[in-house]
Design a protein around this nucleic acid. Structure first.
Lengths: 261, 261
DNA sequence: TAGAATAATATTGTTGACATTAAGACATGA
DNA sequence: TCATGTCTTAATGTCAACAATATTATTCTA
């Protein structure tokens, strides 16, 4: 009952001794000793970030179940590093809301109640509204819409066949991410990405029927139109409604499965 | 140039060996081996949490300047612990957006550009609107308003004298926190507390004149009234406007100080 | 002197060992 | 049978030392 713990995914790529080449360094020579050069983010992802990324994928994909404990030494053994970097990685996941860390009890995959799912969707709705309004008010909105166009047009094609359900979810997720990034509000991007990731499995649940996908695709078209028209108020309203519909569908399916996930 | 680093605040209270008593444990006897008992949060704050709390106060109060680096061994020496707990504490602060941690470069106090301040206030505005709407739709809203009443009534008294400026900010901050907690959306509470803390210094800046404080107090009364009337739409609109006014004032003062903080 | 290469130093990253505590197993007694 | 207490086990918390890297200071050269 002791060994045979880890290796839940195939990504066990010996992260130690990776010798990631230091940033090529633009040879400016001069060292900016001022407080923060900021701007250029590190090209080289740190070890904890790499580990967090892997674990994140497992959580979102369901390899790690909600409520499941993630224990440090198991992960440490798997990645062939000590527990230090694992702890950092878990803190990063906590920042994204994917795990909860309780003192003396370690990390466990976030497990949301129906009520909490509803709460997060409410927040997302408000922020989606804000996002739609910001873009609708942007003079550059037509250029932004052009980059979104292929995705919006892709959605209706993926409605019918249940075979393409996953692809639909993925496309709408990308569309949403791209749209958020286009809003020009960096902090909003951070928060919404985090919330979208936390609710991705529930969003997927809510998009399991063709009708719902049709409704979703329709909503996206409406938002796009309102933005193109520059109608900020309408864009905000529809953007919010899009998430509210998503929320209702998700909760309906959730309660169909069991009373209190 | 080596010694004499730390001890920026008087709170150097030998945190090591604190022997915090374990949670009294409700003596249920039965051990729940299921995944997460959840609910009851640990009564005993962990060492990193205590340290993070102290550092947080210093950042918000300005003892640590924006952009300033916080180096691990300095803080470790001050609190008489090793660097491990300090790192965890810094991660906690990062989660609250009070510091930024860059790989190989450590933690530095978050320094916001005017544009970023505007962004955060925009998000806060949307969420304040959501909050006001949620409460206005709550059947229990009158009871909630009763708990808020003393604060709302306190505000106008603190408008005139610039002497009470700090007290005004503090009172409105508490009022806002209390109101968020009353919204019933726990995740919203987390996010808004974090954003409010990040922008506290700018909110303070925006409330430096008596006129602004009068405007703010008036807004609070309007929100309260709309909520009492159960007018969710109005409550949302005013709740949002309250933050927009706060934002505009803050940015005005910020640009009065210098072009690009 | 200015600028670049180089050395010195300070700081973060990682590790393995140990301390502390929680969870489960077992035994005892009502 | 159930509750209580003790013991065992396993996990997290902390530490100090070392490795890798960034930053600063120095030296060298044009």
């Amino acid at each position: 009952m002791k060994g045979a713990k880890g290796v839940k995914n195939g990504t066990m790529t010996e992260m130690r001794h990776e010798r990631r080449r230091a940033t090529p360094r633009p040879a400016t020579g001069r060292s900016a000793n001022r407080a923060l050069p900021a701007e250029l983010q590190p090209l080289t992802r740190s070890l904890p970030e790499q580990i967090a990324s892997t674990l994140s994928a497992r959580i979102v994909s369901g390899t790690y179940q909600p409520g499941e404990r993630i224990m440090e030494q198991g992960v440490a053994a798997e990645f062939a590093v000590s527990r230090g970097p694992i702890r950092e990685a878990l803190r990063l996941l906590e920042k994204d809301g994917l795990v909860v860390i309780l003192p003396r009890r370690g990390a466990q995959v976030t497990k949301l109640t129906v009520e909490e799912v509803r709460e997060i969707f409410d927040i997302r709705a408000a922020l989606h509204g804000l996002r739609a309004r910001l873009i609708a008010e942007d003079p550059d909105r037509t250029r932004i819409l052009d980059t979104l166009k292929p995705f919006v047009e892709q959605l209706p094609k993926l409605c019918r066949d249940s075979q393409h359900a996953d692809e639909y979810v993925e496309t709408s997720f990308k569309l949403s991410s791209l749209m958020t990034a286009s809003s020009g509000n960096k902090r909003l991007t951070t928060i919404m990405s985090s919330l979208a990731l936390q609710t991705l499995r529930y969003t997927r649940l809510g998009l399991s029927t063709p009708q719902r996908r049709k409704q979703s695709a329709h909503n996206w078209q409406l938002v796009t139109k309102a933005i193109r028209d520059g109608d900020a108020t309408a864009a905000e309203k529809i953007g919010r409604q899009l998430v509210v519909d998503s929320r209702n569908a998700a909760i309906r399916e959730l309660q169909k499965l069991h009373g209190g996930e």
